[in-house]
Design a protein around this nucleic acid. Sequence first.
RNA 1: GCGGAUAUGGCGUAAUUGGUAGCCGCGCCAGACUUAGGAUCUGGUGACGAAAGUCGUGGGGGUUCGAGUCCCCCUAUCCGCACCA
Length: 947
Amino acid sequence: MEYNFNEIEKKWRAYWAAHKTFKAENRSDKPKFYILDMFPYPSGAGLHVGHPLGYIASDIFARYKRMKGFNVLHPMGYDAYGLPAEQYAIQTGQHPAITTERNINRYREQLDLLGLSFDWDREVRTCDPSYYKWTQWTFIQLFKHYYDEKLQKARPIAELVSQFEADGNAQVNASCDEKTPDFSADEWKNFSEKEKQEILMHYRLAYLSDSMVNWCADLGTVLANDEVINGVSVRGGYPVERKLMKQWSLRITAYAERLLRGLDQVEWTDSLKEIQRNWIGRSEGASVWFPIAEKSNADVLPGVQAYINQASLHAVPAFEIFTTRPDTIFGVTFMVLCPEHEMIAQITTPEQKAEVEAYVTWAKNRSERERQAEVKKVSGVFTGAYAVNPLTETRIPIWVSDYVLAGYGTGAVMAVPAHDSRDFAFARHFNLPIRQVVLPEGEQPTDTDTWTESKDSKSGVCINSGFIDGMPVKKAITAVIDRLVEMGIGERKVNYRLRDAIFSRQRYWGEPFPVYYKDGYPCVLDESELPLLLPEIDTYQPTATGEPPLARAKNWEYKGYPLDYNTMPGFAGSNGYYLRYMDPHNDQCYFSKEANEYWRNVDLYVGGIEHATGHLLYSRFWNKFLHDLGMSCVEEPYHKLVNQGMIQGRSSFVYRIKGSNKYVSLHLKDEYETDPIHVDINIVDNDVLDIEKFRQWRPEFAGAEFILEEGKYICGWEIEKMSKSMFNVQNPDDIVEKQGADTLRMYEMFLGPLEQSKPWDTKGIEGVARFLKKFWRLYHNSELQFAVSDEKPSDAAYKSLHKAIKKVGEDIEKMAYNTSVSTFMICVNELTDLKCNQREILDPLCRLMAPFAPHICEELWQLLGHTESIAYAEFPQYEEKYLVENSCNYAVSFNGKTRFVMSFPLDMSREEIEKEVLASADAQKWLQGQTPKKVIVVPKKIVNIVI
RNA sequence: GCGGAUAUGGCGUAAUUGGUAGCCGCGCCAGACUUAGGAUCUGGUGACGAAAGUCGUGGGGGUUCGAGUCCCCCUAUCCGCACCA
């Protein structure tokens, strides 16, 4: 029989489905292996060849692990909530559930064509009530917990309440908002219920607060920081502005340290870990309180300590700054507040009031985009007020400028113009003093007036710095912090760039919050009320009064109290999906303890790098929280993570002569003025345009004329993103139809290293198709009848097979599948040349290739007489004895340049090899009578003769 | 600006980790079978050269008997972060 992939693939797809071949059991004596793909958002466009790249790679690994005797969990599902379905609903009025369902079905059809060994019985969809019940449930737990800094763990909020009742909050060491007030036990007891709730909100891990959010008017919703790039939304590219809104947030910052430390325990690429480290942005330094100077015009204010001691710091007007370089405090010549800083109004002098207000208004109204675009432009205004530098006891002016960010540290900085480029630029622009306090090694102090930029101060010794003069930077940092602590105005502090995750979206297509409002403060539903179903509404727009779409829902209330109008963000559902796969049908709990303790965490996670700061951070946080609750037994959810590269498109172009409907072939185009026009790659073969199809392609090309070269129209090409608009999309369905799924699988792997981006070459796949045909023919005679003999194979055949087993085995462990495919090609070429058709070779070869090309291998496996699926057959083991060589080809080089090759027995001594090489005619020719200065013989490798 | 990665034929890539650069495939060239080929099979294919040979892994230095691989400097491209105090 000819290799009929269509029939074979159809047959085995049906077989696997009918036999539930890839069903994973939660109890097994086998070791477990959990291999997960980042589940897709089912878009309306369907899959192109780039999407399955990771799925195929993980599938090969899953199939390999099964053959190695592991109980493999390899599930798939859908990240089904999200903006595109809702945007489409707004445009068409169609319910997003309907379009989502349709897209999922299409995805499933396409995925099924690829022979992926998923356990579909475990499928999850984030928009399914039986799934989002647990997303809502986790939200409720977050609401009911706070983070205990001492235990480094989430604890029930009730424990916090007991502490408040006993001692107030002075002794409490918990993650909370900056503005959390201090209170005693008595005060707590006298608070009203509403006041108590407001206090607790400062501690909850899911909390409602007025926060500065990224408001995207075009999408009608707020966005999390990772959903905004360069001041515009990641989805759609709409402008984003800062706005103060009451929103749910998740206190992910409480976990910053654990999120950072956990990175040391996982096998991710360094670049990905680095992205997360940057995003978390830990910096060590000091928090320092600068007192506001009293109404004194003196430049030097001795006795700061006495001034501070007059009252507790909080009574003296003062503001807090964060610095990583407390050692430069003697170089502080002014202070800068961000325009949003709440003390501005309080400290600004009457004379400066108008100017400051104008600046603040201007700065606040600028979009993020404008602000970021004009980073180099210096702007600011003097408040008229002064602070006291507590160490120099001098009076320093307080300015307002938008180069200080509200979102980082305290929104206020001590400016050290000599050693900070931004402070330097500001000082120069407004003519403020610059004072050098760090002297790099080997330099002499210079007049700061002559400087054109700030001086690096990473290392060196302190100068002009009072008691730390002469100290190296590192020592000075400690010394200054000690002094500040002593004075009662500072402390060591670690600061993070990471912000809490804004968790509300003013959208319809997402999980409703299990929250109602009683007397104006939020309460969570009882767990028994879950899931809180997403209600039906008439239209998916905000209301006339600007309320989110859920405000349109009828009876959207609980026991007469209004329910929350927001829904959760797109990333909510994906946070814990990997846990739910372990026990997807459990309606009593998120997942059972047994299932979790068996599957533990994901051993191999495959997906795109685009989730580096979103999903991968939130999901780790979510899991750590569930770990604190004693539910998820392993703290890091994804042990090994591989980011697959993108498959780029190879676009084809025709060149239209300007102002005409005439097209000139690639190599002649420079003789004309032309415009390149994208042309559908389906009407181009090997860069040759099918002229007739081009004329039919679109009405405007119907009358096209051509200037040909050698009778052909040659198209130009360029590597671009694979996208419909560039007409360079390859549809996997078409390839499966034309070449087969096994060919597609192997070709995707053959393109290059998994983690690299590489273009899709429409021609290259034919080489893989030819290879599979050749592979098939190994098992067949010239009449194409199945013909495998039981004769003893030759040594050469054994060697060829075992070379391949060794290499492929090593490659799979490294996921270096591109070299595996080429190894198969080499092996099949060799066996074909050897006319090998022996069972002892072809049976293991079939198993070796089964993870890559499962359909054809199942078919051959059956022809070989096996009755069980090859999916659980034993992966072949290589035996060293077939690979032993008794001679080696030594490359003989002169001064490092290879000249010829000589073969010697492996056990030949260096001396003998040297003698024989030098005696050979080839060597004599190159020596030309000279005596070699030195001869290097590396056994089993090379001979190098130095002359 | 900071951090990370990458750079090898016309193209995608490979190189036992310091030891014969270019495996495998595409493309290209030639041949076979064919009425025909955009099918199939066989052989060739880094550049220059008639050949002997010379040159050759982004560029420049270095270490070494020997460097695509190690070290230093530079260039280009991609990615992440970016007024982060």
